[in-house]
Write a protein that binds this DNA or RNA. Structure first.
Lengths: 320, 320
DNA sequence: TTGTATGCGTTATCAA
DNA sequence: TTGATAACGCATACAA
């Protein structure tokens, strides 16, 4: 095996430039105590051979190889993308290497990735939770872990304002616009937050204000919104609340096909695309980008010093 | 500083289980030469303290820390997402840790990320190219780099079938459906591929078949498609080719608003959303997922053995 | 079957 | 201002 193929080490550079290892180390670490001339001499060799110190060796010396694992459900989830986009710069700025992986809504995959991250000695992780993910998987990471979208007890979590968002939507419709017949297209209650919480908020509002509930639950896809719309329309609502922007897309498609334009659509979750395509839709922004910022900062805090698990709810905002 | 906070080392485990470092090392490396009883003894301690050997230390011993950098333009680009999604499993399967970073269409950011990756001693990189990215940035990586979406000379590149896709669309419209007045909404030619190539293919087809060109160029957003549509409609086309699915979304919105439904829309790029919302739109699939597979395999090949730079064009496919 | 000693590429501590 | 040398955590050739 020829030496040429393998990477140069600080020892080689030392030999090449006629100084000792330590001097080379000083030069590449910008130690001010080296003489100008020797620095130049060494730097020349460093440049010439494109030398970079072995990251692993440095890491071993405590120059931490800091890495954060980010487990998203799907790479192409708009909401998670926004959150990730806003946390990346924060991690970079603090010298962490974020490594992004997909769980594809499979707890088994999460487990797999988690051991991978443990082997890689990740310093901390961000997990986008989903139905079927159990907090027991995370026990090892409890103190260096931020969970997004689910309130796991004893974990630091960033949650969306599911209840508040639905209330804001309903309050607007009921108080400001005097709607009395308000429908709801949601997600199966097996999904605790997007499904259960948002649905329950709708039901509670209905009972509180004595209005007739008209809800139907399906899944997260726009197909679901499209297909379920009919059964809500049957009761001739004047407004419909959609639990997600995908559902709102589906509903809007149906309304547009049927040339119905006297029904107010309001969506929990505000995507650029929805606002563009169906600009008359009122949306409630859940603050995905803020969630990313909160999550990153919270994790950094946890890693820096012992800090109590806390649940942060990202404020929602009605946009009209 | 208490020892409890810092991670255990193989030395600690050795002490705890009353054997030597080497024996512990043998156990965790599944050396068959260790006695059953000692193995159990050591494993017990390992389990108890959740010990994992320092990755950096073993990396230094040659147990390579293989990493691949993937530089996407934007995390929320649908097309790049698909490509990344299909390459990730391949890298995992081959023991590489993919680390994903965003360039945000900035060459400066790419440069920055590139030095980061060099410091991290990444073994190879995948770069999603964009207008303004110069191949000179990549020279250091030339032999361990796959470029996507641009044909950089002397680099291994995965390109989309821009010209073929447009031709397939036009051929279908002209030959099978006998359209004579075909419009085109594209992207500024400064974007060499999506912009220049697709536009040129349109123009070439028009001249070849002696049909009146009716094209307008803007940017990649759906707003652009929406706004430019008017000036194409002025010449009353019976079909319109859109250079991207975003543009097609914008165009479709306008057509739907104006209640125009006798114009055939055909989109280069086939997204799930476009097919759902405007299912009458004909689409040409550019094969983003295939591109990911090609890219990953090609890179692995390059890293394994010296291999000539080659350009792979992903076949496109008309869907109707 | 196990322990000892050595080296991997760095940085830090000491002496010179 | 520089150089020798000892760590860091691990794997392994060699000795026992």
């Amino acid at each position: 095996m020829s030496k040429s193929s393998t990477n140069l080490t600080i020892k080689d550079i030392a030999k090449l430039s006629g100084v000792s290892k330590s001097t080379v180390s000083r030069v590449i670490n910008h130690d001010p105590m080296v003489k100008e001339s020797t620095r130049n001499k060494v730097m020349a060799i460093v440049e010439k051979y494109q030398f970079t110190p072995s990251k692993s060796a440095r890491a071993m010396r405590g120059y931490g190889n800091k890495v954060i694992g980010i487990i998203v459900t799907r790479l192409d989830s708009i909401s998670e993308n926004h959150a990730v986009q806003s946390m990346l710069p924060i991690f970079y700025a603090n010298g962490y290497d974020p490594i992004i992986i997909e769980s594809q809504f499979s707890a088994a995959k999460v487990a797999e990735h988690l051991t991978m991250l443990r082997e890689k000695q990740a310093d901390g992780i961000i997990v986008f939770a989903f139905t079927g993910l159990d907090s027991s998987l995370l026990t090892v990471w409890q103190h260096k872990c931020v969970v997004i979208a689910r309130p796991f007890p004893a974990y630091s979590c960033i949650c969306y304002d599911d209840i508040g968002a639905v209330n804001k939507a309903l309050t607007y419709l009921y108080q400001s616009e005097k709607h009395k017949k308000i429908g709801f297209i949601g997600v199966d209650k097996q999904d605790q937050t997007t499904g259960g919480l948002r649905y329950q908020a709708y039901i509670d509002f209905c009972t509180a204000y004595k209005i007739q509930a008209n809800a139907v639950l399906g899944n997260l896809s726009y197909y679901s919104g499209y297909e379920l719309a009919e059964s809500v329309l049957v009761h001739s609502p004047t407004a419909i609340v959609c639990a997600t922007d995908s559902i709102a897309l589906g509903l809007n498609k149906l309304l547009s096909e049927k040339n119905i334009n006297n029904i107010v659509v309001i969506s929990i979750g505000s995507s650029e695309l929805l606002n563009f395509l169906f600009s008359q839709t009122i949306t409630v922004d859940l603050g995905f980008d803020k969630a990313g910022i909160y999550a990153a900062n919270e994790l950094l805090l946890m890693l820096e010093k012992q800090v109590n698990a806390k649940i942060i709810t990202v404020p929602s905002q009605l946009l009209k």
